[in-house]
Simulated assay, not measured.
Amino acid sequence: MTTETTPLPDQTPADDRLSIDECWELLDREVVGRLALIVDGHPEIFPVNFVLERRSIVFRTAGGTKLWGAMTSKPAAFEIDGYDAREQRAWSVVARGEAQLMESQAEKEAADARLLEPWQPGDKNFYVRLAPKALTGRRFTVTRPDLWNTRLADPRRASFE
């Protein structure tokens, strides 16, 4: 028996959706994001430091699972999120597209000029570009921490206390 489901419409209020330009601005402020790929038939998530170069997300990696997954997983996704304690608002940006290995030395140098350097030791000789075909984001007010039993490490507590 198969059951068809109708996808739920986007229930994010229009005023909480981020514009494409706002998404790019938030991406440009961050240095670490999460790359989501399908590897050997299951989802994998890799934290990567990155730069923006020509309206695309660029990171360096060594040969291995992440590189192989980036080259074979179609499509790929990339996500960043954050919290503004002053405004008590959180945000999230998701880019979806295909990852491509950068071959051109000029493109690699352009990424390096944006200060793309690996955080983890070791050779990270492969440059990968994710040019988003879809870029979405949202911003939302977070629930006050006094309404729940909030952990001491929760960043919302600092803005409330």
Rank of each mutant, 00 (worst) to 15 (best):
M102Y: 07
Q11A: 14
A90W: 04
A36P: 03
W68C: 01
T65R: 13
V58W: 06
I38N: 08
P47G: 14
P43Y: 04
L26C: 08
E87D: 10
F50Q: 01
D81N: 11
A111F: 07
P9F: 08
I80V: 10
L67E: 00
G69Q: 00
C23I: 12
R89E: 01
S92T: 09
D112N: 13
R17W: 09
V48M: 12
S104V: 10
V32E: 07
P13H: 07
L26M: 12
M102L: 15
G33Q: 06
S56I: 09
D15L: 09
N49G: 11
I38L: 13
V93C: 03
L101D: 05
T61H: 05
G97V: 02
R89D: 00
A90H: 08
L52C: 12
R86C: 07
H42G: 07
R55A: 14
G63E: 14
D112I: 12
D40M: 01
S19I: 03
G69I: 00
D40L: 04
A14C: 04
R89Q: 12
A36V: 06
E4R: 12
I57D: 02
P7E: 08
G97Y: 03
L115P: 01
V58K: 05
S19H: 01
A110H: 07
A106T: 10
P47D: 11
R55I: 06
G69A: 06
E4L: 14
D21W: 02
E30W: 09
K66E: 09
E98I: 09
R96H: 06
Y83W: 06
R60S: 10
V39E: 01
I57F: 02
D40C: 00
V32G: 07
Q105K: 14
P7M: 03
Q100H: 14
V48I: 13
V51K: 10
D112L: 14
L26I: 10
E44Q: 09
D10K: 08
L116V: 13
C23A: 09
T3I: 15
A90G: 15
D10E: 13
E30V: 11
I80E: 02
A111C: 15
D84V: 01
R89C: 00
R54E: 15
P13D: 11
I57N: 01
R54V: 04
G64Q: 04
W24M: 08
G82K: 00
V48T: 05
A85M: 08
A99Q: 00
S19L: 03
G82P: 00
Y83F: 15
P43L: 04
A111D: 10
R29W: 03
A85P: 14
G64Y: 02
E98K: 08
R17D: 05
L116P: 11
R54A: 15
L115M: 14
